[in-house]
């Protein structure tokens, strides 16, 4: 299945995260390939979301959080002083667990990112960009006639796709997804999964999920986290059929977690 040679997008070395004195993840070293879907699985509290939030420095917002180790994006350490987290986040977008569109119009939701980054200087360019992003998010047919409606009035699945379109609109390299389907019904979930597969042609996607079926369906690589440690990382089919570690085996067969 993976026959092409992929470039590495993210390289992380010995990443540890502390919340105050409590260690959340312990020396994670993980390489993430470009234009692939990498799934992070593991029981609640295992540190997978924490790890994900390190990749675009969203942990900076949490006051007592400290990150050790190295995270390289295209060879640059994102925690070095030269990197502005604001610019980093434009390159590494994020979609959250609960759909969180701004309580503004659909158009404004998508146009906000480009606007603050100075992409799309006039109304026509912005409109094109909005349409293009919605098209990529597979939402254009559903909302093209009501771009001025408040985005929070849409269904949960549509809201989540608005959030994906919003992330795409600033033209990132990487999209981080933190359990994007956990608040959605199976049909909306299927749509998002479909969307992820098509987006992976142009974007590197890293998804945290509780659903092992989802990880199996969408991802090319899977990492299993447990208690802040990275237990196993490899090709998804291998992780789900012949894991090297007993813990992985126990988790995917539902013996704990």
């Amino acid at each position: 299945m993976v026959d092409k040679i992929n470039n590495l997008k993210f390289k992380t070395k010995n990443v540890s995260v502390f919340y105050g004195s409590k260690q959340a993840i312990n020396k994670i070293s993980l390489d993430i390939e470009e234009k692939q879907i990498t799934a992070l699985i593991g029981p609640s509290g295992c540190g997978k979301s924490t790890f994900l939030r390190c990749l675009n420095r969203m942990n900076d917002v949490i006051s007592n959080c400290s990150v050790n180790g190295k995270i390289l994006l295209d060879g640059n350490n994102i925690y070095s002083d030269e990197i502005d987290p604001v610019l980093l986040r434009a390159k590494v977008g994020m979609v959250f667990q609960k759909p969180n569109p701004f309580p503004k119009s659909i158009f404004e939701n998508i146009a906000y990112g480009p606007r603050i980054h100075g992409i799309g200087n006039n109304r026509a360019e912005l409109t094109d960009l909005v349409h293009h992003s919605l098209e990529q998010a597979g939402l254009i047919d559903e909302v093209k006639d009501r771009l001025d409606d408040i985005a929070t009035g849409l269904s949960g699945g549509q809201q989540q796709r608005i959030c994906i379109a919003r992330a795409i609109a600033v033209n990132p390299d990487v999209i981080l997804m933190d359990e994007p389907c956990s608040a959605l019904d199976p049909i909306a979930t299927a749509k998002i999964e479909e969307l992820m597969s098509s987006l992976s042609k142009s974007y590197t996607i890293i998804i945290v999920t509780h659903s092992m079926q989802q990880a199996g369906r969408v991802s090319q690589k899977t990492a299993f986290f447990h208690m802040g440690d990275l237990i196993e990382y490899g090709e998804t089919p291998k992780i789900f059929t012949q894991p090297d570690q007993q813990k992985t085996q126990d988790y995917i067969t539902g013996r704990f977690g």
């Binding site: 675009n56 969203m58 917002v61 604001v86 610019l87 980093l88 986040r89 434009a90 977008g93 994020m94 959250f96 609960k98 969180n100 569109p101 701004f102 309580p103 906000y112 990112g113 603050i116 980054h117 959030c163 919003r166 992330a167 600033v170």
Partner: peptide, 15 residues
């Protein structure tokens, strides 16, 4: 105001 709104803006690269 739900923190998710702030997170959404920050994740888009807003200061």
């Amino acid at each position: 105001v739900p923190p998710s709104i702030k997170d959404a803006a920050l994740a888009l690269g807003a200061s």
